[in-house]
């Protein structure tokens, strides 16, 4: 081994080149997921038993003209490939057809009105999930093997096993219906005229509180368990000993030296967690009648509004892809060893 050269120079990496390679990698895998989402969306109605026309019409008895219109709209008389081509072209332009229920409003319009509400509660909840999960996980790891650790673990496993929608129902029943501390549903008080922007914000916060708490309860435990396990492993590392030998305070050793390393597995879970929370939004928004995409999905199931349902699913897939890329960037930032 050429000792002298290795010992004298550092391993140089061309940052620009690596970054562009990373984007290409990311792009290809994102594209694959996107295609998968499109294929699933395209295939499901066509694979289901019964004539696609009946499915696309939501089972309503149609006149001949209406049937013909549907056949043309989806190109059902053409070959599968042509249908798929048409479908993709429409989807790329954001055209998922017209909602059955909100007829004649296009699906995309309805979804775009609902999306900000969903993102509001999801992102807020996510921040709290991470903070609480981190805090409890670090506490458990620091006292690994103790009673505190065992209790924290048992509680989080229990919380993990409770159905989210039920947690939401209980919160709504206790804090909404019985105690009256929070509104019973919606994202804001309908018809209210606010005196100031602050009043309006307060109203929105009040409506979002219970949904956000439900979402936090649904996911914090996973973060806690992941962080605990990685932190326990990190605390055995030699560099923790170095940090302690430096005379740093316990808090600094824990939250700086141990945490930065232990956080990495937690960060990889972020994107998966966001996808799970998107699913969770369906339940939470249903229970609290919160006007987001989740509620839209539930309503579409109820009213058999298939175009809407598919639009929502596709949009969720897009959000998940975006979050994946974002999380990858965070990971890159946190772990200097990663070079794509």
């Amino acid at each position: 081994m050429p000792v002298s050269r290795l010992d004298a120079g550092i391993v140089q990496k061309g940052d620009f080149q690596l970054t562009s390679r990373w984007w290409i990698n990311r792009g290809v895998s994102s594209l694959l997921v996107l295609v998968a989402a499109l294929v699933v969306n395209f295939a499901i109605p066509r694979l289901m038993p019964g004539s696609p026309v009946d499915i696309f019409s939501g089972g309503v008895k149609l006149t001949r003209e209406a049937r013909q219109a549907i056949v043309e709209r989806f190109g059902l008389d053409e070959s599968v490939w042509e249908q798929f081509y048409k479908y993709v072209v429409n989807a790329v332009q954001g055209d998922f057809g017209v909602s059955f229920f909100y007829y004649p409003q296009p699906v995309i319009e309805v979804i775009m009105e609902a999306l900000p509400w969903t993102l509001l509660i999801l992102v807020t909840a996510m921040i709290f999930q991470v903070v609480i999960g981190y805090w409890l996980g670090a506490m458990a790891a620091w006292k690994a093997g103790s009673k505190t650790d065992a209790i924290l673990q048992a509680v989080s496993l229990f919380v993990f096993s409770t159905p989210l929608f039920w947690v939401a129902m209980v919160l709504l029943y206790v804090f909404g219906y019985q105690l009256g501390w929070f509104p019973l549903g919606g994202a804001y008080t309908i018809g209210e005229i606010y005196e100031s922007a602050w009043d309006q914000a307060l109203d929105v916060i009040k409506h979002a509180t219970l949904p956000v708490i439900s979402l936090i309860i649904a996911q914090y435990a996973t973060y806690q368990l992941i962080l605990r396990n990685s932190m326990v492993a990190v605390l055995k590392e030699q560099y923790i000993l170095t940090a302690e030998a430096k005379g740093l305070s316990k808090g600094r050793v824990k939250h700086r030296h141990a945490a930065r390393n232990a956080l990495l597995p937690m960060v990889t879970f972020l994107s998966l967690s966001f996808a799970i929370s998107l699913g969770g939004s369906v339940f939470v928004e249903t229970v609290f009648s919160y006007p987001g995409v989740g509620k839209l999905i539930f309503d579409s199931v109820m009213s058999r509004d298939y175009p809407m349902l598919q639009g929502c699913f596709f949009l969720f897939s897009l959000v998940v892809i975006a979050v994946n890329i974002f999380v990858d960037l965070i990971y890159r930032f946190l772990d200097p060893r990663i070079a794509y």
């Binding site: 030699q238 560099y239 000993l241 170095t242 390393n261 946190l334 772990d335 200097p336």
Partner: peptide
Amino acid sequence: AMGGLNPVF
């Protein structure tokens, strides 16, 4: 060599 330095700083 046994990880005496913290890899993220």
